[in-house]
């Protein structure tokens, strides 16, 4: 996606042959500016940060004192052994879990203050693919796209479907899909309705090598357009220039946890 900055182009467009009368310029500029702001809402300069996050699952402290920083165009790669809290951190970022303590902020504003605004800028891909067996591939995709953004068009959903290599499967019911095809359909949601922050929990599971390449390209384009990605993986997913976050560094030793509680 290319973002046009009208103020940069302004000088040139004044010299260009006048298609519109000059008096139109202030109005046109205002319209274009408003449009740009709407399109890039939250994409341009915002940051997503976490400070001193503590996550408790059941009776166990999964991690504590965890902090991260994500700016526009950046990617965060979550690493760590099984059970180190990669999925929990992603669910925490999405707002599905509440941190036991600590703060999640979007551009300085606490995320907990406006859950709906946060949900509007997040796409979460978890372990389950949320595909209804009796709905066709395209119906599944279209439902999630329209639920995320009722204004999202069918064109975008069609493009997302084709990008993920599901064009031939558009009318196939969900129950006939293989695990990899289901995963591709789930990932197509990312493109069918735009959102700034992508939270991907082991997105490459079940994908063939070619699909992983497509995923990498899609993520790179999203970052180039000012999007952010947080991704957990055990496989090789190529994220150039991604920050790495080792979750085992934030694990709490049993004795220390006793100290916290004792």
């Amino acid at each position: 996606m290319v973002i046009y900055y009208p103020y940069r182009a302004q000088g040139r467009s004044r010299d260009a042959p006048a298609v519109f009368p000059k008096s139109c310029f202030p109005l046109a500029r205002a319209v274009v500016l408003l449009w740009c702001r709407a399109m890039t809402n939250g994409m341009s300069s915002h940051t997503f940060t976490g400070e001193k996050l503590v996550c408790i699952r059941g009776e166990r402290v999964v991690f504590s004192g965890l902090g991260f920083h994500l700016a526009a165009g950046e990617a965060l790669l979550l690493l760590g052994p099984n059970g180190s809290g990669k999925s929990s951190l992603l669910r925490l970022m999405a707002g599905l879990l509440k941190p036991a303590s600590g703060r999640l902020a979007w551009g300085g504003d606490p995320v907990a203050d406006d859950r709906e605004a946060h949900a509007a800028r997040v796409h979460y891909v978890g372990h389950h693919d949320a595909i209804k067996p009796v709905l066709s591939v395209f119906e599944n995709l279209r439902f999630w796209a329209r639920l995320h953004d009722p204004a999202s068009g069918a064109g975008l959903a069609r493009a997302a479907r084709d990008r993920m290599g599901l064009a031939r499967l558009a009318d196939v019911p969900g129950k006939l899909l293989s695990a990899g095809q289901k995963r591709r359909l789930n990932l197509a949601r990312l493109l069918a309705a735009p959102a700034t922050l992508w939270l991907l929990d082991e997105p490459s599971v079940a994908l063939d090598r070619q699909s992983v390449k497509v995923l990498e390209a899609v993520i790179a384009e999203h970052r180039a357009a000012g999007g952010m990605v947080a991704l957990s993986t055990h496989a090789d997913v190529d994220l150039p220039g991604a920050r790495e976050l080792h979750l085992d560094h934030f694990a709490v030793a049993p004795e220390a946890a006793m100290g916290v509680w004792g």
């Binding site: 999405a94 599905l96 979460y124 372990h127 389950h128 949320a130 639920l147 995320h148």
Partner: peptide, 15 residues
């Protein structure tokens, strides 16, 4: 709940 749709529904930008 079982197929993960409920999580995504909970993440829809509406109440």
């Amino acid at each position: 709940y079982e197929d993960g749709s409920l999580e995504l529904l909970a993440l829809t930008p509406t109440a």
